[in-house]
Design a protein around this nucleic acid. Sequence first.
DNA 1: CCGTTGATTGTTCAA
DNA 2: TTGAACAATCAACGG
Length: 176
Amino acid sequence: MKGAKGKAAARVPKEVLNPADDRRVGKRKAAAGKVDDRKVKREKKAKKDPNKPKRPPSAFFVFLEEFRKTFKKENPNVTAVSAVGKAAGEKWKSLSPVEKAPYESKAGKLKAEYGKQMNAYNKKQESDDGDEVSDRSKSEVNDEDDEPSREEEHKLEKEQDEEEGGEEEEEDEDDD
DNA sequence: CCGTTGATTGTTCAA
DNA sequence: TTGAACAATCAACGG
């Protein structure tokens, strides 16, 4: 008897979850314990990129954020990140495309903003070289976005209608 | 003491 | 096109 009383397990002291099936993500971390290639953690120094925009949360992550609350609400004992992750993963796949729609929609928006940041980011990288070649960036900066949500899925009737006015992107002018 | 891992999937960048 | 890595989270654990 492994004593491990699932329910009784008040707080998972040590993530005692199954050894994962074959979920080998291929080792997201470059090397456990080795920090070299791409900065294992975003909070290192990495002054390499002064303003590198962090990747926007994917639809799954958006859903995760909400799921975490729910999960923890029903499982206040379980605070393990992996526990929620697994549960979320299963649920996520269980969700219908329609349910994921709102999440994807949001993710799509974040992605759009991220794209703009990248534009500035890329530019800065070259510009940083000292040589400013405007011709380099052929990608036109989406001046006034065209509202990518034009052909959104025919679904999304009224959910997430909220406000679309979130287009206020504060261009970091320059904090000199 | 602080950094890192662990787990999910999706997305994104670079070569 | 593919691969590799990282995005949040939170607590526990290693050196």
